[in-house]
Every structure is written in structure tokens, then in C-alpha cells.
Design a protein around this nucleic acid. Structure first.
Lengths: 339, 339
DNA sequence: ATGAAAGCGCTAACAG
DNA sequence: CTGTTAGCGCTTTCAT
């Protein structure tokens, strides 16, 4: 069916070695033969088979990207950005969704091994490192993104969630808030801890004591969970004047929950989200949120991947900063001493 | 480095053929040898190389998915759904983003040829069929999704946009609207036409004459373009009482534009969107919108792909229905005769 | 400057 | 029931 290197060689009256070298520019071939070969390639619509090429050269130019979900706008955008960056280097991406499920993650990683990917980029679904270590031991470069697993000596690109959360809380404190609610994700992940650390540290540094009523964990990952969480928070501590949510969608739910409870945002309760998803700039009020620095992450991932491919021992750990995007959902509290 | 079939054969003291047959369950092997082989596989952490397997068997168990963007929530969700469905059949997906750019589409398709994918699923970026026909002629099953290209004899799964738009407009008419604005996408695509057809047909069937002032094309694809478009619409025809937008994000912009113009939704102007994106159910008012039937599309795509793989001549054209999701953004107009 | 040929890891005849 | 072997399409020595 489709033409192979043999067909091209025959058509161009040269050896298959010459065709290979013309295609890959891997040794000098006289202009005459180059012309004949290219003409034959054109005529036969020949496309080299990268996979079988990799059989000997040990490169398939495929990279695996494993993440919880690409239908989430943030991860979707990250996947797209990484994909475009890698395309320029001739790599294509095999994308696998794990839904934060370890079984699915293992199955995805197994598939990627069988597909002989050159490297794997993963947003780990859990702290379980077993399979990831197996990949590493196979000699496949594997890069952790957004969530780290400590002490297994792997390249990691994360966001400095501690600092960004600290900044966000501090911004609220500077605006006169002290009863600041925190809505945490349903399941603990590596960055949950860092975010909480930042929250607590900012309060402590400002001499504000920690009120356990101001902390709540969502039941799930949807909008509605944000509604429910904020209403519990308000019930537990009616004096709350600000809320920080671990995720913009949760923040959206929180706003709804606040409004449904008869309060307004930001006049009664200020809200800060996290991720800077596209819709947050379109809300009324426009949401103040912590940026998820997609481009910086993608750039770092590409850089580390390429270097790891050149040098199997290359390891780099990078923390990028998530800036606070100040918009309209935070004001000074009505009854603040600052007023 | 990683173990190969040879290593396993040596370890298990059998021939490589036996290993292959144990792995693929492709002929009877005595329990004794099966045991030895599986033990060796376990011990050596052997994973068969699917790519080189495909070298002879002519199957790589990779499928290409080419679409404009996975960071768009709708396409992202579609990609994820398709990915999960194919995973069950042991296929992995190579996802390529085209940004609706024909050059990128061609480059993506070339890559997929070189990766020897078993089939290609594509949301075409343009009406240019050249490359797609080349793929078809190579014998690679290729399935068009969401946008069709006529008369090239390819399997196609589309949404019946004409009917769904007709229904939506008709719903507005039933509610007493007659000055109904339509906000169209910036660039013409196959379904733009069908949507417009439905819009016009519904008006005609109701005996409402077409007012060119009620039609506008967006400048771009963002939220802000919806704001601008609706304001132009209102300026050109202050009597407008309803607006249909081709895309939920545009509808979101339209709502903002209407509010900023001093009117309210739906009391002064009703709004209908398209796609039923997750956020639309969370808006105030909750957006009435035309559903994009992701599951139905994904199911059909899987079905057609598998059948095309079995039978290279298999062709199927399917139109799935996009139901109107009735929520809160449409009411009877203030000054309607129906009141 | 070019070609011949070995072999990458595997499947599928073919033998026995 | 199991093993031997010829390729699949390509890269890469090794010759010339």
C-alpha cells in the first residue's frame, strides 16, 4: 500500500541507505542523487515510518503526557501548550487521562511503555511512587508536574503554592480582613499541604490566631461543592469577611453560595480563587485569583525533557511563581477597623 | 536496557514464538510453559513493544485525534470522552491541535502518517479536502467530526445544527419573540451555514420576515466579541427582544453587553447559547442553550472507527441531535402581543 | 560518495 | 504442542 523506503530506492535507482541518508540528512549525498531521491519521494508520496526508525535509533519522537483530565480548562490549556511546544521539536504527544485514579494512571503508564515513548510527563494522581520509579528504572525520563513526590530523585516542575497562597492571604489581611475562610480540596494532594501552609503562615505572621471554623474541605470537585462549603463556613462563623478557594470553580460556587445566603461579594464577603481560569475575568465581580503559570510550566517541561533526553542523568527541580491577579472580588470589610 | 522477547525466551527456556503466543494468546501453549513464560515476564518486567509488533501485524493501536483545540472545554471533554472509550479497546490517542489553521492541520496529519496510526478522527479546520483525501487514499480510515466536507465519501459524525437551531428559534417565537438577533461566528465553517439555515427557516415558517439588522458576525472567538456584537445588534435594532449566539462564551459576552447597555436578561432581552458548556448552568440567569451531544458523538466515532478497521470500505454518515436545554435566560418579551 | 547487509523486536508462516 | 525462520521498514556499521 503506502510506499516504503525500498520503493523509493527502486524508483530513484539508489540504495535504501542513500534514501535514508537523504531523508535524515545524515551523510553527504551528491546533489544528483538527492534530486532523484526527492523526486521519487514526492512521486510516491513516501513518508518515513518513525516507529520502525526508532527500532534501531531508539527514538520514537513520541512523548507521553499523563494528567487527571484535559476537559478541565486549566489542564487542557497546559496540555495544548505543551503539545505545541513539543511539536516544534518534532515530538508528538500521547495524552492519557487518569481522573486522579491510580489504577488508570498505572494502566496509562503501561501503555506508554509499550508505545516506547521517549519520555513521560506526568501530573501524578497520588503520592504512590511505585510505578513511576519503575519507569525511571527502565531509563525513561519522567518529569513530574504540578504535584511532587519527594525523595525519589525526579525532575519536577511545580508552582510555589505556599508563596502564592501566603501572598493571597496577606493581601486579604492588608485589606483589613482577619476572619478568613479557606475552602480546601476534597482529597489531599501534595500541593494541598503547601497551600494550607501558606494560609496558616500568613495568618500567624500577622498575629491572627487560627480559627478551625474557618477551614473546610469540599465534598467533591464541582461548582455545587463550593456552594455547600461556603454556606457551612458562614454558618460556622458568621463573622467571616473573606474566603479563599483552592480552585476557581469552587470560588464561583462560593460566590453563588454567598449571594444565596443573602450577602454580597465583595461588599460583605471578599473571595479569592485559584488558577485564573478564563471565565474568572468575565464574572461580575471579576474574580481576584492566583494565576496558574501555564507558559512558564510548559517551557520548563520542554527544557527539562529535551535535556533529559540528551543526558539521562539530568535532573532539575523547578518551582515557578503563581502571581496574585488582583481584580474586583476583594474589598475592605464593612466593619473593619481600617475604615 | 528494557527486556525484550528474546530475554524472556531465554529466561523461560522457550522459543520467542512461544513467548509471543503466550503474550497474545494466539495459539495453545501448555500450562507448564505458560507458567514459565509468565514468571519470566514478571521477573524481567517485560512489556511487549506494540510498535514493532505493528510492523508485521499492521496495527499500532494508535489513533490520531485532530481538532482545533483541547483547551476549549467542549472539545476538551470530547477528546477526553473519546480517549476513554478507545482506551477500553486498547487504543491510545495521539492528540493534535490545529487552532483551526490548515497548515497546522496538514502538519498534524503528516505526523500521524509517520506514526502509522491505525485511524484518524478529525474535526476539520477548513473545507479544504486535499490532505484528507490523500490520507483516505493511503488506506487510513479517517472520520470527520462536527464539520463535514461534502462529496468526498468519508464517514462523518455531525450534529444536526439546522434542526437544533430551528428548534431554538422556534422556542423563542413560541414565547412571543419576533425581533430575534443572531450572532454568528467570525469564520464560516460547514455548520455555520446549517445554523443560519435553521434560523432563517424558523423565521420564515412563522411568517416573520428577515431583518438583516438582526444578523451579525463576531470579530473573533472571545467573550469580548460577544459583548461587542450584541451592542452593535442593539444599536442597529433597538426593538430586539432575543438573541441567539453560536457559542456559549459568545452568549456570556452577549449577556454582559446587554447588561452594560442598561437592559436585563431575560426581562428585556432573552438569550440562547450553544454547546451547553458546564458554566452555563451556573450563570445567573442559568443559560438556555443548545446541547452539544458529546457522548453520542464519541460513541458513534468509536463504533465507526472499529468497523472501518475491520472493513476498509465501511462508510457511515450520522447526524446526532442537539437538544435545546431550557433554563432561565428566555422569557416572553415585555411588550409582546402574547402578554 | 555510495552500497550491502546486519539487525532492531516482533509476528506469522512453516516444519516437525 | 513447540521451535525455526523469514521478513516488516528502517538505521547504521562496514566495505568499497
Amino acid at each position: 500500500m503506502a510506499a516504503t523506503i525500498k520503493d523509493v530506492a527502486k524508483e530513484a535507482q539508489v540504495s535504501i541507505a542513500t534514501v535514508s541518508h537523504v531523508v535524515n540528512k545524515t551523510r553527504y549525498v551528491s546533489p544528483k542523487l538527492v534530486g532523484r531521491v526527492n523526486a521519487a519521494i514526492e512521486k510516491l508520496e513516501y513518508y518515513p515510518n518513525m516507529l520502525v526508525g526508532g527500532l534501531r535509533s531508539k527514538q520514537t519522537f513520541s512523548v507521553g503526557l499523563v494528567l487527571p483530565s484535559i476537559s478541565n480548562e486549566t489542564f487542557g490549556k497546559l496540555a495544548e501548550t505543551i503539545q505545541k511546544l513539543f511539536l516544534r521539536e518534532r515530538y508528538s504527544l500521547i495524552i492519557c487521562n487518569t481522573s486522579n485514579d491510580y489504577e488508570l494512571e498505572v494502566s496509562a503508564l503501561n501503555t506508554l511503555i509499550m508505545k516506547s515513548v521517549d519520555a513521560i510527563i506526568i501530573v501524578p494522581s497520588t503520592q504512590i511512587a511505585e510505578k513511576i520509579i519503575e519507569i525511571k528504572n527502565r531509563g525513561i525520563p519522567i518529569i513530574l508536574v504540578d504535584r511532587d513526590i519527594k525523595h525519589i530523585g525526579l525532575s519536577t516542575v511545580t508552582v510555589n503554592y505556599r508563596a502564592s497562597t501566603y501572598n493571597a492571604v496577606n493581601y486579604l489581611i492588608e485589606n483589613g480582613h482577619s476572619e478568613i475562610g479557606y475552602i480546601d480540596r476534597a482529597k489531599e494532594l501534595s500541593h494541598s499541604m503547601h497551600q494550607r501552609d501558606g494560609y496558616i503562615a500568613a495568618l500567624k505572621d500577622a498575629g491572627i490566631n487560627i480559627n478551625p471554623n474557618n477551614y473546610i474541605r469540599c465534598q467533591g470537585y464541582d461548582y455545587q461543592d463550593g456552594v455547600d462549603a461556603v454556606q457551612t463556613l458562614i454558618r460556622n462563623n458568621p463573622a467571616i469577611t473573606a474566603v479563599l478557594a483552592y480552585y476557581d470553580v469552587t470560588a464561583l460556587g462560593a460566590i453563588r453560595g454567598i449571594v444565596d445566603s443573602g450577602y454580597s461579594v465583595p461588599e460583605d464577603i471578599s473571595v479569592i480563587g485559584c488558577d485564573n481560569m478564563p471565565f474568572t475575568g468575565a464574572l461580575v465581580p471579576r474574580l481576584t485569583t492566583i494565576n496558574f503559570p501555564i507558559d512558564a510550566i510548559a517551557d520548563a517541561v520542554l527544557d527539562i525533557t529535551l535535556k533529559s533526553l540528551e543526558n539521562r542523568d539530568y535532573i532539575k527541580t523547578l518551582e515557578v511563581e503563581g502571581a496574585l491577579i488582583i481584580r474586583d472580588s476583594v474589598t475592605k470589610p464593612r466593619f473593619s477597623l481600617n475604615r
